[in-house]
Design a protein around this nucleic acid. Structure first.
Lengths: 147, 147
DNA sequence: TGCGATTGGATCGTGCGCGATTATTTTAAG
DNA sequence: CTTAAAATAATCGCGCACGATCCAATCGCA
């Protein structure tokens, strides 16, 4: 005679999705105080990174880079515009598109922002190589899930 | 003479946090249609998993398991109560605590829910061993970040 | 027994993130 | 040249997720 069956064979700790979900929240909680210094939320920080990489992008381009839709980005970008970090203006050549450009203030923020990633890497307790490997594995996972 | 310096040395694709963040969204988008069948959102599904593992928990216990605060859980649990999946009642022995119990309907949902994880594993394009390894790595990451 | 400190949960305000819908512009077809 | 179809972004509504705050119940300790 065996032990009584467990009430459920779904084990939360086996869920890859839950590991990712809870790690994402943990990152957010870690970033919050660091980004408060810059006056940015986490998604806003990601938008800034894309614009620091290359300025003058449309809403659609930013969304493609961050895997976000315009209904998410539009209000977020308006808040960033109100904060004086970016400018939003219709492309004269195609008035459907809104182009985002860094303001001087937005460009200047890069200097302070450089301090953030080393800070975060330290908190992960991973070497650069381990972080690289994990980033690549999870990137591949995202690609697989998005099919 | 070297090539002109790039406008930014912050590369989005190097960010472990962004990999996790975007993978979390990708999971959500994958789960959405599957959980719609069960009438659950993703965080609600996680609550159900914790209750299927062990029934009759307080709000605080569920929050500890899922790394969520009461201000997130309270309205979520009220919606689940309204949907007839759980009951909420004050613990007579300590009236500060609210105990969550599965209804018959909530317990019955487990059968349909069992179909979800295999479906998701397939979408990850990972073997069980690879998924296990990645889950553990990311779990360790979450632990490190939460210090 | 009494009372300050702690605990557990609820409430409020802000900011994502998405599905669905709408409006406008551009492009394509006849 | 006119009309249909597609692309792009904005708008609206809902559900998390969190920090800050509040309140009631309980506990600690004299």
């Amino acid at each position: 005679m065996t032990a009584p069956a467990p009430p459920s064979d779904l084990k939360l700790d086996d869920f890859l999705c839950f590991a990712v979900y809870s790690a994402s929240h943990a990152f957010n909680r870690l970033y919050k105080p660091l980004l408060d210094e810059l006056g940015l939320t986490y998604p806003q920080y990601l938008v800034m990174v894309t614009l620091w990489e290359r300025d003058d992008r449309t809403v659609g381009e930013i969304g493609e880079r961050l895997f976000l839709e315009s209904n998410t980005l539009t209000p977020l970008l308006k808040r960033m515009e109100a904060a004086g970090l970016v400018s939003r203006s219709r492309d004269p050549a195609d008035e459907r598109q809104v182009r985002l450009r860094l303001t001087d203030e937005g460009r200047a923020l890069l200097d302070k922002a450089r301090q953030v990633p080393p800070c975060v890497l330290e908190a992960t307790n991973l070497s650069s190589e381990e972080a690289r490997s994990l980033t690549d594995q999870i990137g591949a996972l995202r690609t697989a899930l998005s099919r």
